[in-house]
Design a protein around this nucleic acid. Structure first.
Length: 267
DNA sequence: ATGGCAACACTTTGTTGA
């Protein structure tokens, strides 16, 4: 069977609902992993996407973060949060909070995680240590599925550019998060656990960036980054027939600052 | 030069994002 799986940091599913529905109709993925819902689990627009044939498993608490999986292939074994997922201790908080950044499910023949990896903010910030710890936990959680025979992938906003080629100008990121050696080592650890970076093709230019800042005409100037990734195990990667970044969805007003990444499989 | 865009909620300004 042919299966189309996509990931998209939507930057508010309520603000982006018209764009989401339009994209679901045109791209018609079987499974879509969303990040940055910016709404609670209850506030997700379930009915609107159900009219297009999708069931949804969402995980959100409100203003920040939030992840979901939309599926035309049903759901089994839905898991909210990574087992032993680290929390983040905010400046004004007494206790660390486990944020809604991961949801896993089996959709037909494929098991997926939709993940929104912490940003890290600055290299000397507690959020950066949190990011590395979060990625380490992810590595531990995916180990069994990564080594298994069932097609499996982690898709989402990893907030790490895997190589220098994945940012428009490496000099512009000197000393910043997203390109540091420890962050990239965390991605390498996922690969050592059995996952492969499914490199999408760009629809324009030479590199498949997935994120462009809203400011200073970054998109028309193609000052982008590739941080939205599809990490599949061998069974998944071997089944890939095509993968691309749908930069068309980044065009115009009222879009997310991320583009969807689409992967087609023959299973 | 700390802006610039966008979203959101508790402050219609401050926080977050990358």
């Amino acid at each position: 069977m042919t299966v189309r799986i996509a990931t998209w940091n939507i930057n508010s599913v309520t603000a982006r609902l018209p764009k989401l529905l339009e994209w679901l109709e045109s791209a018609a993925p079987d499974v879509l992993c969303l990040q940055e819902l910016k709404c609670s689990t209850d506030a997700f627009p379930y009915d609107a996407v159900a009219e297009l044939g999708y069931r949804t498993e969402a995980h959100g608490t409100g203003r920040w973060n939030g992840v979901a999986i939309l599926s035309k292939l049903g759901f089994e074994d839905v898991v909210r949060d990574l087992p032993d997922q680290p929390g983040f201790l905010a400046d004004d908080a007494m206790l660390p909070v486990v944020e809604p950044r991961a949801i896993g499910a089996t959709c037909g023949p494929v098991r997926v995680w939709s993940v929104y990896v912490p940003n890290g903010r600055e290299v000397d910030h507690a959020h950066y240590a949190y990011k590395l710890q979060w990625l380490e936990t992810l590595r531990d959680v995916i180990r069994e599925d990564a080594a298994g025979a069932r097609p499996f992938a982690v898709l989402g906003d990893f907030n790490v550019a895997p190589t220098d080629e994945d940012v428009f100008d490496v000099a512009a990121f000197e000393g910043l998060t997203h390109v540091t050696a420890p962050e990239r080592a965390a991605l390498t650890a996922l690969q050592e656990a059995g996952l492969q970076d499914v490199l999408p093709r760009p629809l324009k230019y030479d590199r498949p960036y997935t994120y462009w800042d809203y400011r200073q005409l970054a998109f028309p100037k193609n000052r982008g980054m590739r941080i939205d990734l599809t990490y599949g195990n061998k069974a998944f990667a071997d089944a890939v027939t095509d993968s691309y970044v749908d930069r068309e969805a980044r065009k115009g007003k009222g879009t997310s600052d991320h583009a969807p990444v689409v992967t087609d499989l023959e299973l």
